[in-house]
Computed example of a mutant assay.
Amino acid sequence: MPEGHSVHRIARQFSRNFVGRRVRASSPQGRFAEGAALLDGREPTRARAVGKQMFLAFEGDLWLRVHLGLYGAWDFAGEILVDPTIASANGRMGQTNQRGTVLDEPIYDDAGENSLTSIGAPRKTRVHVRMSEQTKGLDEADGLAAPDAEWPPPVVGQVRLRLLTDATCADLRGPTACVVETGEQVQAVIDRLGPDPLVGDPAENEERFVRAVRRRNVAIGQLLMDQAVVSGIGNVYRAELLFRAGLDPHTPGKVIPEETLRGLWRDWDALLRIGVETGQMMTMDGLEGEAWRRAMASRDDRHWVYHRAGLPCRVCGTEIALEEMQARKLYWCPGCQR
């Protein structure tokens, strides 16, 4: 399931490529025909993300709310304007590392996690994209699709919703939730969510998180996955945050020292920002040069414990444990996390 960094990147895509541009909305699959009809011909006015949910406002107090869930993804095609925080100085897609150094070339992992063209569940796409050196069929003078590129692109697979401007196309497949709501209904959804480090007042968010955890006699490994406690954390970030904090996943929230929880929140803030910036869940510190590039290209080289069951801990050598917690896989080190 896409975690918080991916959903924030989706919202940025819509802010730069759809907000302020009238869209044509359709449901090629047919399952969202009524909702698409409500949005068709309207102009998006704002895009925002809170945790794992994305909200796209349209004129007339209508909002599109999307939760990708386990299988959902947005595929973008056409002319894509790159967010300046992830674009290099020459205008092409780039990535910055934890020290703020802009990499000359984009680095793609084997799942395409940092792709500007498909965000969500891993999938292979055939698209024409602006500002991508790896895309064929582009006019390099202006970054637009070559004249022989089909526009709009053909519908591939079960597309729940297609949003189309004169230049950019976004196809939504397989979401858990795709609904049109009023502003009041959207606010009610947001009010039920826990704090997101990138939304609202930072100090208030930290206090909300600490209070929510310390009043519960529930394992911290469960609480971090509860979107009413904290928004955006999924299986990968949970495992990595708990390892970095040296916390046993089974520790009840109410017995964890306040300062430990504050450190956990601030670490989540930092990792989320790195994820939004790079497009990948980079959770290891101190990587430089080739080590950084390996980590950007391979998930096996960027995490401390996630997906490392049975392997020795990178710090203490203890075998990484794997168990189920609330029907989700939990990776942790019994040696470092006590």
Rank of each mutant, 00 (worst) to 15 (best):
I190C: 05
C178L: 14
I190W: 04
L81C: 13
V186L: 01
Q98H: 06
A73V: 15
N114C: 12
V159L: 03
L144F: 11
V82I: 09
V156C: 09
V218M: 03
W151F: 00
E206M: 07
Q134V: 15
T176M: 10
W74C: 04
E113W: 10
A73Q: 09
A177M: 10
D83Q: 15
V199W: 10
G100K: 05
L172D: 04
V199E: 11
K124P: 07
A203W: 09
A141W: 11
G94Q: 00
V218W: 02
P122N: 10
G174K: 02
A203D: 10
R99P: 09
R192M: 11
Q185W: 07
R162Y: 02
A212Q: 02
L163I: 08
A87D: 07
P152R: 01
A188Y: 07
R123I: 12
E150F: 15
A149P: 01
N90T: 15
T182Q: 00
N217Q: 13
D83V: 14
R162L: 03
I119P: 02
P122Q: 10
A77C: 13
R173G: 06
R192V: 11
I119F: 03
Q187L: 11
R123S: 10
G78Q: 01
A177R: 08
K124S: 14
E79T: 15
A141M: 07
E204H: 05
V186H: 00
T135M: 11
M131L: 13
G91A: 02
G91T: 07
K124W: 10
A77P: 02
E181R: 11
N90E: 13
T85C: 06
G157D: 00
E113K: 09
M131E: 08
T117P: 04
L81N: 11
T182I: 00
R211V: 13
V213W: 00
A111G: 09
R126Q: 15
C178A: 15
G143Q: 04
T85M: 07
G200A: 01
L198P: 05
T117D: 05
P154K: 04
